[in-house]
Amino acid sequence: MSMDKATVANIARLARIRLNEDELELYAKELSGIMGWIEQLNAVDTGDAEPMSSVVERLLPERADVVTDGGIQEDVLANAPDTAHGYYVVPKVVE
């Protein structure tokens, strides 16, 4: 299959990665190649196979619904590029 620049621009927008014209061109070519190679899976008869999301064949463990961690605001914010008054700072979202 071939993927055009508009498709790449759309998925780059979904993935929140800014791409320039040259990159759109490059990724359109590369992704077309990779997706073309992946197309071979269309020919596989999966019958009634269940989709696998985990190889661990057991239920996720449960525990009592109690607080086990917390009170580490400084640790949580320690690596943030910009903080104020104990919060992360981002550009204004609501006018």
Binding site: I11, A15, I17, R18, E23, Y27, L31
Partner: peptide, 18 residues
């Protein structure tokens, strides 16, 4: 994300998103 990810990571994030 444009500045922080390299070419191979961008490629795979784009495939995954697609």
């Amino acid at each position: 994300r444009a500045a922080g990810f390299g070419a191979e990571v961008k490629r795979r994030v784009l495939i995954g998103t697609y």
